[in-house]
Design a protein around this nucleic acid. Structure first.
Lengths: 346, 346
DNA sequence: GCCTCTAATGTTATCGGTAACATTAGAGTA
DNA sequence: TACTCTAATGTTACCGATAACATTAGAGGC
């Protein structure tokens, strides 16, 4: 059907191996021959069959990025960073969107294994991703986790300082005089939710405030989840004074619910959250956030992956990136900036 | 190295074809045999080699989505829509990010052809993408264009009503009394820029206003581009009263530049743009926009693609989706909503 | 002139599956 | 009983490249 290497070889009057050598830029081809072959390739619009190539050579030059939600700006910034590094190192990166659905995640991972990608970057859906990841490891395909760790799966990881970041956000709220602080948490089988909850509790404890379970609502870390959780919070007998949202999209839901209830931010309810939303922040610098260097997550993770692929790395490495507190209006304070700290490699 | 179909066959005491039949869910296998084989597959963690499979069967079950910028929320919403439809039809969708770079676009397209994807959804970088697209067509791989058409390439297309939308936005500005209206346009080899510019000119003409070339600035349709173009506009001897930005990200740049210049929106400069940014709009409903049904772009386009793949479609089809004017603050008027019109298939 | 060596190119087997055809065994039939 | 038919399974060739080894021809040494 399609043009094959044989067609090219025939028309150029050489063997398929010679064409193959031209394709792979081996220098063992006379320049006249090479030119002739290249001309025929152009004439026929020949594109080598990657399947056959990969099957034979065991190399595809493709890396896969697997994320739970492509519409989350944090992940897309990360993806851009990773894609760029991949590109400049001669790899293509393909992206898979799992919609936080374990079945899809499994299917995509198996598919990527089947397609023989040379490495995987993944933001796992939850600790339950471990089963899939074990399969990947069993196939000896290098993996690097981003943003979320997976319990019982010790491997290369680039994550944020979730505990510390959460703590600082809550401390900030405390410093503004808030005592009754709610947390909008994600599912506890996601490491970031766990760690941020820990940070929240530590900050409260250090301030001598008793932890009240009814103030912590577990929900999905998207806009809808934030919206519903906030409605729940607003119905409590004694309303919280402030909310710490586990991430940016959930915070959007908070804003929505608060407005719908006819209340005002930050007067009726102060709000802080993890992760910034760039575009929104420029249009109106409103949310007080713990901003993470998303693009660096991607570039660093891809570096780790390349190290793994080339066999340079040995033990699992963990990179922890600090976040930056950006104080805006939603917390009810005026603007201050803390410098971004450097990455810590352990 | 890895577990192959032969290993499975041997261990299960059957031939490779029987294993293959189990994998492909053919019913020509006795249920005992099937169970035995499935058990061995699970034991060995066998994942069939997609390369070999695709090579032999000429089918991969993979579709590719190629977009210029994964961090543009319009594109990611579109991607989600498309991915969902693909998934529910038994296809996997992989995403390629070209960064509006023709070379990357070319490389990814060739790669996707090489990987023998069964169909392509693409938001082309510009009219110059035609060369790559011709290559795709030559390989008889079904393609559907989204959002942008390509001059000289007549194929399935899902796009917005760019001319009409632009016109309505500018008419809205005119109705608010603005006469000196600037346009922040993208490169004219991108169809959306061309059509929106046309709409802008039509609206002015109909209002009896002379077109002033100095008021139209061509730039990149991202934040940086919008920022730089606005700085240029603000330095004109006679400042414009309003700006129509070709897209949402460029509008973010406008906001940035205006604020930096110590001016205020919409008092010193009114602003309207194409395409909404969901999250930003919830946090603060500020930009007056022509909102496009991004997700529908994706789902419809993928439907068209599936039709093509199954050979149902014949002539190129064009779907045009209307946009919705959402009046907020940046134009300097109070809020009004127009209903979304239904898609038109031609 | 003969031999060695190397650069350029060719031949063959193989990667891991599936398509297409072949075989086998038992059921149904006359 | 012999014969056909079909369900279950096996054999072989091939998809389109490349790895590994083979061949060839001319350059250069003696």
């Amino acid at each position: 059907m399609a043009v094959t290497i044989r067609d090219v070889a025939e028309r150029a009057g050489v063997s398929t191996m010679t064409v193959s050598r031209v394709l792979n830029e081996s220098d063992r081809v006379q320049s006249e021959t090479r030119q002739k072959v290249e001309q025929v390739i152009a004439e026929l619009g020949y594109v080598p069959n990657g399947l056959a190539r990969g099957l034979s050579s065991q190399k595809t030059g493709v890396l896969a990025l697997v994320v739970p939600d492509v519409s989350n700006p944090f992940f897309t910034k990360m993806v851009r960073g990773a894609e760029n590094v991949a590109w400049h190192n001669g790899y293509r990166a393909i992206l898979c969107n799992t919609e936080s659905d374990l079945n899809r995640e499994k299917a995509y991972l198996e598919d990527m294994l089947a397609q023989r990608v040379e490495g995987l970057l993944i933001v796992p859906t939850s600790d339950q991703s471990r089963r899939h990841l074990n399969l990947v490891q069993q196939h000896k395909v290098p993996v690097v986790l981003i943003d979320r760790s997976v319990e019982g799966f010790n491997y290369d990881l680039v994550e944020g300082d979730n505990l510390g970041g959460a703590r600082r956000l809550v401390e900030h709220l405390l410093s503004l005089g808030h005592r009754r602080i709610a947390m909008l948490s994600g599912p506890l089988d996601i490491s970031t939710s766990r760690d941020r909850l820990k940070g929240y509790r530590q900050a409260l404890e250090d301030a001598g405030i008793v932890y009240e379970p009814e103030l912590v609502i577990q929900t999905n870390v998207d806009q809808r989840g934030g919206y519903e959780a906030t409605r729940q919070l607003l119905q409590l007998p004694v309303r919280p004074q402030a909310v710490f949202s586990v991430n940016n999209l959930a915070a959007v839901g908070v804003v929505e619910a608060v407005r719908e209830a006819g209340l005002t931010l930050p007067d009726d309810l102060a709000l802080v959250c993890f992760e910034d939303i760039d575009y929104a922040s420029v249009i109106c610098p409103f949310l007080t956030v713990m901003a993470q260097p998303a693009e660096s997550f991607g570039t660093l993770a891809l570096q780790l992956l390349l190290d793994r692929i080339s066999g340079r790395a040995v033990d699992p490495r963990h990179v922890s990136l600090s976040a930056e507190l950006i104080v805006r209006e939603s917390c009810g304070a005026k603007q201050v900036r803390q410098p971004l700290e450097l990455p810590v490699v352990s």
